[in-house]
Each structure stands twice: as C-alpha cells, then as structure tokens.
Amino acid sequence: MTGDIEQTAEHTTAKLGIEFCGEWFYPVPGTVYSIGRDADLVIDTNPYLHRRLLEVESAQDLWWLANTGKSISVALATADGAYQAMLGPGTRVPLVFPELLVMFTAGSYTYEFTIRNDAARFTGRELPADDATDGGTTIGAVPLTISQKQLLVALCEPILRGGMMGSSQIPSSAAAAQRLGWPLTTFNRKLDNVCDKFDREGVQGLRGGGGKLATNRRARLVEHAILSRLVTAADLPLLDEDAGDR
C-alpha cells in the first residue's frame, strides 16, 4: 500500500519525515511530495481516494501541508489532542509542531499517518503518565453517557485495535449496533444525539446543510473521537458492558 520511494542517504537527513504503515518517507526540500492514490506516497488503490490528495513542500523557511483534493477534508491533531484543525480542499497549513497526526476518510476506509518535523517551531504538552492511557487529556471534553461512549468505541474499534497502523474500515451502523447488541433504531437515535451534541460544541462535518445530518458523519465522528482522545484502547472493555443509559 505504500509508494515505491527510493530512500537514499540524502532523504534520511531531511528534517521532515512521514510514517505510514511502519515505514518512513522523507520529502526533499525544494520539491513537491505528493500523497494519494497515484502519488509519491501511495496510500491505497481505493477508487474513492484522490490521485493526489495532499502535497508537502518547503517554502518561506517552513514545511507546508496542502490539500490538493476536490472533496475530501483532512483532520489534523497533535498527539495530545490540544491542537486540531480541518484541512479542506484548496487549503494549506504550516507544519510547526514536532508531531502531527493526519486522518482522512475515502469511501468506507479511514487512513492515518504521522508527520514528524525536526525543525518544529512549537512544542506540545507533555502527557502525564496517568493520562496517557485513560483519555484524560481530552481538550474541551463533552460530557457523554456510558451508552454514548460505547457508541464511539464501537465505531472506533478497528482503529483502536489496529493501533493507527495505516487504514481501517469504519463499521456500518448495522455492524456497530450488532456489536453492541442494540436494535439499529436505538443505535441511530443515539448516533443522532451524539452528533447533535458535538455539533453544538462546534465540531465540523457532523451536519449537512439545512440541519440535515451529513452522510459521512460516522467518519467525521471517528476522526474527532480518535484525535481528541475521547476514546482510547483502554475503553475497549466498554463494548462488553450492559450500560444502558447511565
């Protein structure tokens, strides 16, 4: 699934590296490095993925990440979730943090990779040891019932079990409802409530125009939950609890 990139000694001395599926790729200053379905870094052959979704290049003494796609928005976050941004088509951001998590969805698959910048201008927060595994570092956390958190864990389960290893298929509503032992109508009602709750808190992408919930809300919800550390692998036992609406 990765691109056929020759990693020369020159590449390994570059200040910026991209980790995808356990492999490292190093854009060269002065060139444009593309990421997508038919690019320098091949993410997947998924036909829903743009041929060139993202580009990395150095300019104005900074590294930049640009979204060159037409319809896919890309979620960005620091490892502690303190900084988050949505990179829409036609926009770009400077890569100023030492480490940035990148997530996007094409069709039914969500993809993740990490960008590490040795020349970062900013530093992130140190994660306290007791917060590193319980999701306690969530910034601006929205209160959730146990069943609402179970819903998030069910949707994020493939990513939580896979450990951000490149790509994961988002469960359908029917599959997630079955995993929790809920009727599909119950799952959809709770999904509506969770999306409404986060939409009121300003999370983008959970509603369409005219108050209609976006069709890709599950994908956006997964991205937000993972990058905000609302759910972590430590929450997986919730899937086996009969929490009801406590």
Rank of each mutant, 00 (worst) to 15 (best):
E223N: 02
G209E: 01
A234D: 15
L236I: 13
H224K: 09
A214I: 08
T215L: 13
L238Y: 12
E223G: 04
T215E: 15
R229C: 01
E241D: 11
R217Q: 12
R220D: 08
E223R: 11
K212W: 03
V222S: 06
E223V: 03
A225W: 04
L238C: 10
L221C: 07
R217N: 13
L213N: 06
G209W: 07
D242N: 10
K212A: 10
T215P: 03
A225N: 00
R229L: 07
Q204W: 08
G208T: 11
D235E: 09
A214L: 13
A233G: 08
R217T: 09
P237A: 02
A214C: 12
D242T: 11
N216S: 15
I226G: 00
D240M: 07
G211M: 07
L239W: 09
D235Q: 05
V231R: 01
Q204E: 15
T215Q: 14
A234Y: 14
A219L: 10
R229E: 01
T215D: 13
A234Q: 11
L238Q: 13
R207G: 01
P237S: 03
L227C: 00
D235T: 05
G210P: 06
G210W: 07
A233L: 00
A243Y: 12
K212C: 02
N216K: 11
I226Y: 11
A225M: 04
R229S: 05
D240Y: 06
L227A: 06
L213Y: 15
A233K: 08
A243Q: 11
D235K: 05
A219V: 10
R218D: 00
D242W: 03
L221D: 07
L221Y: 05
L236Q: 07
V231P: 03
T215M: 12
D235P: 07
P237K: 04
N216V: 10
K212D: 00
S228L: 03
G208P: 10
L213W: 14
D235I: 05
L221P: 08
G205K: 03
K212F: 06
G210T: 02
R207H: 10
P237M: 04
A234W: 11
D242V: 08
R218P: 03
S228V: 01
Q204P: 03
L213G: 10
G210L: 08
G208C: 11
G208Y: 10
G209R: 15
L206M: 12
E241K: 15
G205H: 04
L239Y: 05
A214W: 11
L221A: 06
A219R: 13
H224S: 13
D240V: 04
E241M: 15
D240C: 02
P237T: 07
G205Q: 10
G209T: 04
G211K: 07
L230W: 04
E223C: 06
K212G: 02
E223F: 02
E241S: 14
A233Y: 05
V231M: 03
L221G: 04
D240K: 09
L239I: 06
D235F: 05
L230F: 01
L213R: 15
E241I: 13
G205R: 00
G205N: 09
L238R: 15
L227R: 05
R229V: 03
L238N: 10
